[in-house]
Design a protein around this nucleic acid. Structure first.
Length: 888
RNA sequence: GCGGACGUGGCGGAAUUGGUAGACGCAAGGGACUUAAAAUCCCUCGAUCUCUGAUCGUACGGGUUCGAUUCCCGUCGUCCGCACCA
């Protein structure tokens, strides 16, 4: 088809059609879907199930454009799977507990509950505008009494199964706000809100015993085939398994009744390179040693007050203090080593004590050099000369041969590891072996206590006589009181006049309610299970949970790669132990989508100027250089890099700005075009306008041809122009389906553009009455395919087109069309022909031609003969149906 | 410091995982229609040259191969995660 005829055909349209008006159409179709309850999932539907879920939002006030990208992806999958005949569950809810509601309460004198539910109402309306195929009958918020009631039931079940413990732990304490702070909330050693110097405090808190599952959580990562490798790796690192040896070193002289020092090491092979021991400031031995050593007590105090922030740790100098205590080397009674208290040893990893081997660890080497301790090289790279090999200021951590290590000399380090383990396991100290093999994990138990109001109350009661007593299940829920005051910092539950006073359920005496509430990560660790039967009296309906779970496709941000996903994996295991579900892994497929980013604008300097919103800026393009000007003042603004949309940088675009003008379909289409879904997408006005242009183009194409195609029976063709139309439609139908299955939305969209391009001329021919019956029938079939292909991404436009084509049902309830396999392969193929690996031309030949025929035809090509200069080719490589390479 | 990912036109990105590099879109330029504009439609669009064709070209340098954006080694750069973990 030449360009010339194309221009002729599209010169004039026989019927001028009106522009598609999304503002009128979109609400109309949303009502039509609602009326037919198309998106409500039935737990008794016998068809195969498909559960697609996007991470539910925190009700901050407004839906962000990033949310809409996330939910659009899920919606495309949901609509596609529905069309493929699955019983689809696609629910939505609200992660509604948390600090911002309390901050709003303090700043604006609004009750956290009112603030939260108002936000939910506003955001629900915003979501509805997007035309998402959600089952709103299952909606809940985690702050609903109904939900946290069940969470309290779960908590009690976990307590009963021994999955919960209470222990003392160090926390960041903000003395002004009188609250515990997460590490992320401590900035330069100060509370992020109050600015007060943060203290380390010991508090007794509730913990979930996630560390009991460390090995299982690590091992099971291997089975999560549909998870991104990156996320699995991040979780594996977070769990942080290491294999080592627990060594009990005898003390040279007992200290306050202690006879040994337990040390954990992953390098027992370097035991002859040891030159000192280092223990944490909080180590029991350190505490005992201070009794007659005020200078040591002072040092320990200093270490404790050192910041724990990342920045403080990074820059902190390695410091130690010799306690005067000495230990005896396990292999040499005459060899004793000093014990230091050191600021770089952590009490909560391993045993809180290490042996320092300066030649094999950079930190130990720095320490040894600072305090004049011996440095004995014990591992030497293979082939090095032992006489000249020495360690000065760079430790050697690689593989090699053991030296200076008596009976270990000449071994490889891993042999030496085994040898040391074997010998020390046989020796005894006290009544125990001197060493034991031990696996250590970085993962700690999950502390869930929060000294806050807006969270799920922990259903426990403290009684002076009975100790900690669970609230009887019949007394649940423990409701949050509504009459609270935020006029002072601290936990309002703690100072409520009556709430905390209860009778002990066991002995009936006056007792005290637990006033801590649960970490909000608890709320989000099981909501996906609750969605399967949100009306159930128990936390789950095990039958429904069994049928729906696991979530087939979970979609959300990479920022939840570790905590939320790890906690949910733990929770599912805990819920299995307590009989609420019967599986271990909640999410079969995981997808982490990229952010929506936008360039930034600043007037008055690139580093300290005033930020401008995109709507306050006029862009100019001159001589290939883009420049930005503030509309109000005309002042030139600096165009900054692409950044995540944030209020502070004002580079935000609200979903309404697009839906009000262009409609939801444009926003949906644009956000999935171009950029692969796992990568960031740049929001540009041109891109949005381009997406809208395509919507209008589809509408024009379909509506213009609709009249002439009315009543035409769809029929695919194999030959001629009609065959070309059918082949294009079926090929693209096939690949769009495959792309959506792989969540490659950008590629699916590119294919749909191709189909629209391929159909433009034939559809205009049909519209002008220039198409014969075969072409008309093929066009009718192809345009129906097109409408079904756009439906997952642009569902409203698809309905409008379908109606125009005479459809009496809704595309949303229609099945996905099947492609004809015979139309997606061509009888004749074009084989690229290379000479010496460079393409020189093409060969058109029957698809099923055998290798001999292909070779003969290739050698007959004139450009091949020319290249061969009459000689026989050295080799002809034929990759069937791919390529031919002639080696001259 | 440890671990990982990535690097393709002016831009976002394709390329069936070793087989035609640049699909599709955006931007740009030229043209048609129009009194004009918008809208729409058509054409061009990696670089260079001796321009109806050829050479080069997927961050850079090497290697394996008939053939490399894809695999291997090294260099440079960007991004991400963890971080005093013994």
């Amino acid at each position: 088809m030449s360009g010339g005829s194309r221009m002729l055909l599209s010169e004039k349209h026989p019927m001028a059609t009106e522009r598609y008006n999304p503002r009128a159409s979109e609400p109309k179709w949303q009502k039509a879907w609602d009326a037919r309850k198309l998106f409500e999932a039935d737990n008794d539907d016998p068809r195969p199930k498909y559960y697609v879920l996007e991470m539910f939002p925190y009700p901050s006030g407004r839906i962000h454009i990033g949310h809409t990208r996330n939910y659009t992806m899920g919606d495309v999958v949901a609509r596609y799977k529905r069309a493929k005949g699955f019983n689809v569950l696609h629910p939505m809810g609200w992660d509604a507990f948390g600090m911002p509601a309390e901050n709003a309460a303090m700043q604006n004198k609004v009750h956290p509950k009112d603030w939260t539910y108002q936000n939910i109402a506003a955001m629900r309306e915003q979501l509805k505008v997007m035309g998402l195929s959600l089952d709103w009958t299952r909606e809940f918020a985690t702050c609903d009494v109904d939900y946290y009631h069940r969470q309290q039931m779960l908590f009690l079940d976990f307590v009963e199964k021994g999955l919960v413990t209470r222990k003392s732990s160090k926390v960041n304490w903000d003395p002004e706000d009188m609250t515990v702070l997460a590490n992320e909330q401590v900035i330069d050693g100060r509370g992020w809100r109050s600015g007060a110097l943060v203290e380390q405090r010991e508090l007794t808190q509730w913990f979930f015993k996630i560390s009991d599952y460390a090995q299982d959580l690590l091992d099971s990562l291997d089975q999560l085939d549909d998870w991104p490798e990156k996320v699995k790796l991040m979780q594996a690192n977070w769990i942080g398994r290491s294999e080592g040896l627990l060594i009990r070193w005898p003390l040279a002289k007992p200290v306050a009744g202690e006879h040994e020092l337990e040390v954990y090491t992953t390098r027992p092979d370097t035991i002859f390179g040891a030159s000192f021991m280092a223990i944490a400031a909080d180590h029991p031995l350190a505490k005992k040693a201070t009794e007659d050593n005020p200078a040591l007590a002072k040092f320990i105090d200093e270490v404790r007050h050192m910041g724990t922030s990342v920045a403080a740790l990074e820059t902190a100098e390695k410091k130690g203090f010799d306690t005067g205590i000495r230990v005896v080397h396990p292999f040499d009674e005459k060899w004793t080593l000093p014990v230091y208290v050191a600021n770089f040893v952590l009490m909560d990893y391993g045993t809180g004590a290490i042996f320092g081997c300066p030649s094999g660890d950079q930190r130990d080497l720095d320490f040894a050099n600072k305090y004049g301790l011996p440095v004995i090289p014990v591992v030497m790279p293979e082939g090095e000369n032992q006489g000249s090999f020495q360690i000065i200021d760079e430790a050697y951590v690689g593989d090699g041969v053991m030296i200076n290590s008596r009976f270990l000399d000449g071994m490889k380090p891993d042999q030496a590891f085994d040898e040391v383990a074997k010998l020390l396991e046989q020796k005894t100290i006290g009544n125990r072996p001197m060493a034991e093999r031990k696996v250590n994990f970085r993962l700690r138990d999950w502390g869930i206590s929060r000294q806050r109001y807006w969270g799920c109350p922990i259903p426990m009661i403290h009684c002076e006589d009975c100790g900690v007593v669970p609230v009887p299940k019949a007394d649940l829920p423990v409701r949050l009181p509504d009459d609270i005051e935020f006029d002072r910092p601290g936990n309002p539950l703690d100072r409520h006049p009556t709430w905390r006073h209860v009778k002990c359920p066991r002995c009936g005496k006056d007792a005290r309610r637990e006033t801590d509430t649960m970490d909000t990560f608890v709320d989000s660790s099981w909501y996906f299970a609750r969605f399967t039967a949100p009306w159930a009296n128990d936390p789950t309906d095990p039958k429904a949970a069994t049928e729906w779970l696991p979530v087939d496709q979970y979609i959300g941000g990479i920022e939840h790669a570790i905590l939320h996903l790890l906690y949910s994996r733990f929770f599912t295991r805990a819920m299995r132990e307590t009989g609420h579900v019967d599986l271990a892994e909640p999410f079969r497929g995981l997808f982490t989508q990229g952010m929506v980013v936008h360039e930034t604008y600043r007037v008055g300097g690139a580093s300290n100027g005033r930020w401008l919103a995109p709507s306050e800026v006029r862009l100019e393009d001159a001589d290939g250089k883009r420049r930005a000007f503030e509309i109000a003042t005309g002042e030139e603004a600096v165009i900054g890099p692409l950044e995540k949309m944030s209020k502070s940088k004002k580079n935000t675009v609200s979903p309404e700005e697009i839906t009000d003008g262009y409609g939801a379909d444009t926003a949906r289409w644009f956000m999935l075009s171009d950029s692969p879904p796992e990568r960031d997408v740049e929001w540009t006005d041109e891109g949005a306008a381009g997406a809208h242009r395509f919507i209008q183009r589809i509408w024009r194409l379909v509506s213009t041809a609709a009249e002439s195609l009315a009543g035409v029976r769809p029929e695919k063709a194999k030959d001629g122009e009609a065959g070309t139309v059918s082949k294009a439609a079926h090929k693209i139908l096939k690949s769009v389906g495959e792309d959506i299955e792989k969540l490659a939305f950008n590629r699916a969209i590119a294919r749909i553009y191709e189909l629209a391009n391929a159909l433009t001329v034939p559809l205009n021919e049909a519209a002008e009455g220039k198409a014969g019956p075969a072409l008309q029938a093929a066009c009718r079939e192809a345009v129906e395919i097109l409408v079904h292909l756009i439906a997952p991404v642009m569902p409203h436009l698809a309905e409008e087109c379908w109606q125009t084509l005479g459809g009496t049902d809704l595309v949303a309830e229609r099945p996905w069309p099947d492609y004809d396999p015979s139309l997606v392969v061509d009888a004749e193929i074009v084989l690229p022909v290379q000479v010496n690996g460079k393409k020189r031309g093409d060969l058109t030949i029957a698809r099923d031609a055998d290798q001999g025929a292909v070779e003969k035809a290739v050698l007959a090509l004139d450009f091949v003969q020319k290249a061969l200069e009459g000689k026989a080719p050295r080799k002809v490589i034929i990759v069937p149906q791919r390529i031919v390479n002639v080696v001259a």
